[in-house]
Design a protein around this nucleic acid. Structure first.
Lengths: 152, 152
DNA sequence: ACTGAAATGTCAAGGCC
DNA sequence: GGCCTTGACATTTCAGT
């Protein structure tokens, strides 16, 4: 799929605020409401837009403690890798998990209440998974930027 | 602010899909449409829900190459730190930036088209910022999990 | 891509536990 | 304080052009 200048603007606008009405968007884009509607439907159908979500303030729901954990596996046969990835995806404290190049195998982003909860998470959930070799945790002192907007 | 069981479910539902109508939510929660509406307004007013956004498929907009960069500053006086944070926040390839505990000062999540674009980013944008000491880049081989849903 | 109209949704008012 | 029902108004959605 290829995007013209209007599509690109539309994608940007919707990434910033998906609750805008098509009428508001039509004004910003100098288009009719229906034209906006059809462009959006197309973006959804082509899966350019995956989903619409509400973003929650982590402080307000008492999950202000953020950590990144590097995890190394002891063995790398496919069985272990698949099992680790499946189990880690089911831990709700883990919002993100990436298989990475470099010294460590995985990078996890973890959200919990505080350091006590983080210890609980490490002891009871993460290191309960088989074949975890070493872990290395880094704690977020300050979130400088956190955006979901991809530049198109 | 304190949440009852219905609030928690509502927050979860909206984090999964913010385009559900109040009617659909009222069915799931066994509530009237207005009750749902008022609870949502309250969550928005209290800033529990920050914003509503469309999430875009990075492959479809040609930003499938993801890297994490650790960055260390040479000096840590307030001026340099503030300046670095401000400049890095303005780079659109950098979606996230965290000030971290540990060996490196910052962790950046970077989205670009490919390795060529990543090199461009490093040479022309990141290392153009003053007082960057060392950087260490890790590339995402596979995105195992990427969720915006905080468990409440 | 636009106009126009039906279907559907949002949101305010008033009343009831 | 939080819930419900009702009704006005706005928005979405779709046909016809």
């Amino acid at each position: 799929m290829t995007f013209d200048a209007i599509d690109k603007k539309l994608i940007s606008f919707l990434q910033e605020d998906s609750k805008q009405t098509n009428k508001e968007l039509s004004n910003k884009l100098n288009l009719s409401v229906t034209a906006v509607y059809e462009r959006i439907k197309k973006l959804e159908k082509e899966n350019v837009i995956n989903k619409y979500v509400a973003l929650v303030n982590k402080e307000k729901v008492d999950k202000a403690f953020v950590a990144f954990c590097h995890v190394k596996l002891t063995r790398h046969s496919q069985d272990y890798v698949v099992k680790f990835e499946k189990e880690v995806a089911n831990i709700n404290e883990v919002l993100e998990c990436y298989h990475l190049s470099g010294d460590y195998d995985y990078l996890l982003k973890v959200l919990v209440k505080d350091m006590v909860a983080f210890r609980e998470f490490m002891v009871k959930k993460l290191t309960n998974i088989d074949h975890i070799g070493s872990t290395h945790s880094m704690f977020v002192i300050n979130e400088v930027k956190h955006s979901t907007v991809i530049n198109v």
